[in-house]
Design a protein around this nucleic acid. Structure first.
Lengths: 331, 331
DNA sequence: CTGAAAGCGCTTACAG
DNA sequence: CTGAAAGCGCTTACAG
């Protein structure tokens, strides 16, 4: 039935020209109601769906956005894609997914994305230093493709982005511990440098310094099984009464080891994490965590991108979504 | 520099016809080495990248696959997309992402996907009953678009699919508990029916019946916070010495409550989960779990799809990946 | 309000 | 081995 029906066959059956069929679909108000109805009827009967590729070539708009993801296997990526796809669907955009590995040349990849003729691009989770950021911006600008950073740390005010204030979040959770009387608070971060984690550390450090306390960052590999040894060895001879993990999983991992080595949480050590994932709910004690609205970051970024693609006027290119601390047993 | 360079400009600069430039890209062996080098040089200099849309229209192949995901926000989706995208990249396919919500008409969605001119489709995690499965198959067959089910329960041997044997997995873990002398083993499943979970239950039931034990399935809503009450109330007056959660999170959730209400794990109750996620590692006690190779399911499904798109001969359309039990403290 | 025609940027038989 | 030409299935000024 609906095998490869083209606009030509619709036109024939409705006794109009191709142009009219196209108008019915794209500018219905320009077509006389009678004709419009007749054409729509035929479209339905034949199960006609315009070939998106042909349409893309002719109109030079593909109604497709590229989503460039680094660390695609992360759980939060799925959450963010959920937000992106819900909004994309609402505005009838398709999503093309591009995964950036550590070793791929991001500039090459972006050239590929450009060649795919997307109308806009979302960049998730990436680590773009200033010089690469500049190059990325040039590439997109040259090709007049709007793009939005989602959950990426970025200090260039001319680049549209949606994120949360990680530095402030780091500051607040540290401050909270300090106000509870904690003095030997560690930040548990990752060996590999993530700009998001840098911001958290920055906030932590600021709060510690303001209180005349010594900021101390401990870096783990991030692998749970490895953390175990790291934590146990490192903290064996240390004084510690507070710990903030840059991820919930790191916080929980630390908490388990603390409890096992007789430093009970929260009595002796307060612990907090970032992201407010299910880990925080399933751990014992349950974990205090900073809630990051990942789904919303995706949704808002996609929404912002639609505005840019429509060349709408915007008051601000930078959206900072609110975060909040979810208090639980660990603190 | 590389702004909108077309094949025409390359041809001009290299003093050849469009056809030759096209051949250099698509059938280089048909072009004389000298000419080929000359053209390649120009392509590089101008930073030419063929417009994927135009190419798609002319060749009627888009080198794009559609990925239809239900429950896109699930963590395992990201993992599976990782496997898919790694293999897709290897074979130079792009990925178009389509998210299926509970309420969307899957048939409509597939018609959309078809209109997008993808060369093949991957269906992830979906619940397709026999009649919808039949319709989906018809649609794709009509349009000659190969498709592969990934992590979807499917009994139609003519439909390509990659998954694991969930029934066997359910059987094995239950059997293991029985062999350890457990008699009152519950399966903790979800209220909403997932065919994957049905299979797990089937295996569980089979093992219980073989041992002349009474199979008992307890259904929770799946929300962690709600589980808490459910579990506590339900098991208050029940005898139980084993529990198998259809997901790690459910198992951990149960385990926490069991421990808190004085039924210590593993001494009094053995617990196991499915998926072998980080939850299993971070819980206390650590959780025995069935490892499901989610990344591999994605990768293998994508690889299978490339074969189908190339019309390669296959010995089997059904791939069943191995699973295994990861023993930890909870059992 | 509608149609004829050009064109989007490629690929692919067909000749030579 | 290479080029001229048709065509992929649409959209969009341009006339009327």
């Amino acid at each position: 039935m609906s095998v490869k029906v083209t606009i030509y066959e619709v036109a024939l059956a409705a006794r109009v020209s191709l142009a009219t069929v196209s108008r019915v679909l794209n500018n219905p108000e320009k077509v006389k109601p009678d004709t419009r109805e007749r054409v729509l009827k035929v479209i339905k009967e034949l199960g006609y769906r315009p070939n998106a590729i042909a349409r893309g070539l002719a109109s030079r708009k593909t109604t497709t956005v590229g989503v460039l993801v680094s660390h695609i296997t992360r759980a939060s990526v799925a959450e963010m894609l959920g937000g992106i796809s819900d909004i994309a669907m609402k505005y009838s955009y398709s999503i093309k997914l591009f995964s950036a590995h550590e070793d791929v040349n991001i500039i090459e990849l972006i050239n590929d994305i450009v060649a795919e003729q997307v109308d806009g691009v979302l960049i998730l989770n990436d680590e773009l230093d200033a010089s690469r950021m500049k190059k990325v911006k040039e590439l997109f600008d040259e090709n007049e493709i709007p793009f939005v950073l989602a959950n990426v740390v970025n200090d260039d005010r001319s680049v549209p982005s949606v994120s949360i204030d990680y530095e402030k979040a780091g500051y607040e959770i540290t401050k909270l511990m300090i106000e509870m009387g904690k003095k030997d608070i560690y930040m548990l971060s990752t060996v590999r440098k993530y700009s998001v984690n840098d911001k958290k550390e920055l906030g932590y450090t600021k709060a510690m310094q303001e209180a005349n306390l010594m900021p101390r960052v401990f870096r783990t590999s991030g692998t749970t099984s490895v953390n175990r040894q790291h934590f146990a060895n490192f903290f064996a001879d240390k004084i510690i009464d507070g710990a903030i993990g840059v991820r919930d999983s790191i916080a929980v991992s630390f908490m388990n080891i603390a409890n096992e080595s007789g430093r009970s949480v929260p009595e002796m050590v307060s612990v907090a994490g970032f992201q407010n994932t299910k880990y925080a709910l399933l751990s014992r004690p349950t974990l205090t965590s900073i809630d990051i609205p990942v789904y919303d970051i995706g949704a808002v970024a996609m929404r912002l991108l639609t505005k840019l693609m429509n060349k709408e006027q915007l008051d601000s290119l930078q959206v900072v979504l609110p975060h909040y601390i979810v208090r639980r047993e660990s603190l």
